[in-house]
């Protein structure tokens, strides 16, 4: 029944899912960093930064991911010649552009999750930090963000799970990840339902542990008050 799966080797089923994992990990790390910076901007005392952060989040999170990813490829790469350091290797270029698009998009959600976490940290914590002479950035880095992160591990797990599934949009610019292979298989094979089930199962295998592990972490690291 599953014989047809072994007919594919460029990429193979595992290879395609490995690409999904790579997209998720790189985009996850990137969006965590960029999202944290955006959150810092949104709570900063500088009006220009606050304005930029708010505008970025509200614009980016309201654009469909497909539009962002396709624009990364057609707009940034083809029109503006942004080849991401790989002008001749289109696979690598597509991979990097997809990560860029995913990071830009997911960071907006990470930012809002972290910002809601910042709101759970009592004002007195920041006041005490300032009272011993820490500056804004030290207060944020040493006192507020560490507590904010711990309170939003749950919501961040949601964002990460959504990101894992959103990597399938990279198929739109030809990145050889799971959804691309699925489309190829559906075109070539008769067992459409079976193919759907195989890929659905693959994603559950990736995302279920994410949710369980992060759920456990969020309980373990919760700040006791």
């Amino acid at each position: 029944m599953f014989d047809f799966l072994s007919d594919y080797d460029d990429p193979s089923l595992l290879g395609a899912f490995w690409m999904t994992v790579k997209l998720t990990v790189f985009s996850g790390v990137g969006s965590l960093v960029w999202g944290t910076l955006l959150a810092a901007m949104r709570v900063s005392p500088v009006p220009l930064m606050r304005g930029f952060g708010a505008a970025y989040v509200n614009i980016v999170r309201n654009i469909p991911l497909t539009v962002i990813i396709v624009f990364s490829s057609l707009g940034l790469a083809d029109i503006f010649g942004m080849t991401m350091g790989a002008p001749d290797d289109f696979d690598l270029q597509g991979f990097r552009l997809a990560i860029l698009g995913l990071v830009g998009y997911t960071a907006a959600f990470v930012c809002e999750a972290i910002r809601s976490g910042i709101n759970t940290v009592p004002l007195g914590q920041a006041e005490a930090a300032r009272a011993i002479g820490l500056n804004f950035s030290q207060t944020l880095r040493l006192i507020v963000l560490p507590q904010a992160f711990r309170s939003v591990i749950g919501p961040l797990a949601n964002v990460l799970i959504a990101l894992t599934k959103n990597t399938t949009v990279a198929a739109a610019i030809g990145v050889a990840e799971a959804a691309t292979l699925m489309k190829t298989m559906i075109e070539n094979e008769a067992q459409t339902l079976l193919i759907g089930a195989v890929f659905a199962f693959g994603f559950v295998v990736l995302t279920l542990p994410t949710g369980l592990i992060l759920g456990w972490l969020s309980k373990r690291l919760a700040v006791k008050r």
């Binding site: 914590q125 005490a128 300032r130 009272a131 002479g133 006192i143 507590q147 700040v223």
Partner: peptide
């Protein structure tokens, strides 16, 4: 005003709050 100078001054002025405000983490 806000900034480095203020942070330096605050370091010289100890403050104890009603609600303690110890760093919880």
């Amino acid at each position: 005003q806000e900034g480095k100078e203020l942070a330096r001054l605050r370091a010289d002025v100890g403050m104890v709050f009603q609600s303690f405000n110890l760093f919880a983490h």
